[in-house]
Design a binder for these strands. Sequence first.
RNA 1: GUCCCGUUCGUCUAGCCCGGUCCAGGACACGGCCCUUUCAAGGCUGUAACACGGGUUCAAAUCCCGUACGGGACGCCA
Length: 487
Amino acid sequence: MIRTRFAPSPTGLLHVGNVRTGLFAWLFARNLGGSYLIRIEDTDQERSERQFEDQIYEDLRWLGLDWDEGPDIGGAFEPYRQSERREIYRTHAEHLIEKGHAYWCFCSEQELDQAAEAARQSGEFWKYPGTCRDLSKSDIQKRFAANDPAVVRLRVRSGVIRFRDIVHGDMEFASDVISDPILLRSDGWPTYNYAVVVDDAMMKITHVIRGDDHLSNTPKQVLIYEALDMPLPEFAHLSTILGPDHTRLSKRHGATAVSQFREAGYLPEAMMNYISLLGWSPVSEGSEILPGDELIRQFRLDRVNKSPAVFDTHKLNFINRHYLKTSPAAGELVSRELQRSDWMPQAEGDSWMAMVMDTVVPTVDKVSEIPDRLTQMLEFSLEDSSDIQDTLGDSGAIEMLRQFLAELDSRDQLTTAQFREIAGKLKESSKRKGKQLFHPVRAALTMKSSGPELDKLIPLIETAAKYDLHHVARCRDRVRDFLVRYG
RNA sequence: GUCCCGUUCGUCUAGCCCGGUCCAGGACACGGCCCUUUCAAGGCUGUAACACGGGUUCAAAUCCCGUACGGGACGCCA
């Protein structure tokens, strides 16, 4: 039975690099019909906050992930928050001491720091010298009696440490470069390297999937597995995600938190699809648009790339544009955005939505751009005529527009069908067609030389005007005002 | 300083383990063409990469050695 986990620290918003790890572990488990669980690594009491933990669940759910065990839903290996597992870490540490795999260390943090600093200054390699490795029982008693602060350290064995990494291959480290790691701090809290191993072992995690910044920590952890007499899991260390300047992705690069992408109007399907393509590639060539179930079906951990990946907003946008046009969830999202920005008529919401989905949504990268795009399409300002100079200098065009206005005056709300009929008449009387015909009409209607097809734009204008959305003016008024000013 | 990891089109990558089918394939971006009243979309198409240097071999992106550059670990952070 495959078991993977995602183990974030609740010290901030969930990051793109982090979710990628969580996503890959999820895809892997689901592909093989295994279990996926969430564990919260909150042993850093200073920086951990409950609010971040809740945000993490929300972000993961939004993305479309689900889990079989976790702090919020429980499971067979509770508790799933490290802060609630202190007893467990302590008990295991005591066993390790009994078996001689670990020992109490009373060396002061300050002294050790100084020694390490001195070594670094002189450019020398430094590791913990093992001062407390062989303290006698009575020495230890004395120190405890004196209330000296103590940590528990692992006794690093000699010899080569080997483990398998699914993405990097076989790994080999010499143990003599490894300092005896601290398992329990003097305040009784476990260190990261110790807590992960105890938890992963006890929770029967079969595949440890995480960022490759942990690759160099793994030999230490392997030693802890050995001391605990627990079987080694398979490891998979994923590369880092970089910004466009090839440095680690961070706030400097703009949006990096999952919640920021959600707020910007990206669809979860698009996010999942794009992120899965960062360091992994499907076997099939051609389109890389793959919905969640297809990602699960195709995902293979051994096809994960070792080298760092640069986050590319262009490609994310491309994928998001696709889902905006095809996802059933897009309509709901667009509708909410229209309501939020007062671009939704009280009545006729359905036909208005259909128009928006058909003519404005295909022109944006993300939902949040829709209000601006609508403004841009529907605004009408007589002031700036720079875009339509050719129409202004064309008396034939102006003459035609007068006829156009006459036709409009006899009609209440202009429909697409009526517009086509009028266009047919104008074509006949003015002997104009194509660009000659439509360009001046567009100019009088929008003061611009480009935009959506008039067939689609006109009902958009008329509907918006009917409900006075953002003070959009109706077609008749536009043409009249245009002729008053430029005719 | 020591140890570890990484390096294929601008970007994400396939190929590398099991050398020839790769004068390197796909996707995004970019350019061109088509469609079209215009823009976008869509269809077609083009430009573009094996970090460098040695070796092994009839043959190397693929195997070996070295160099350079980038990243990580060496914490009572995770």
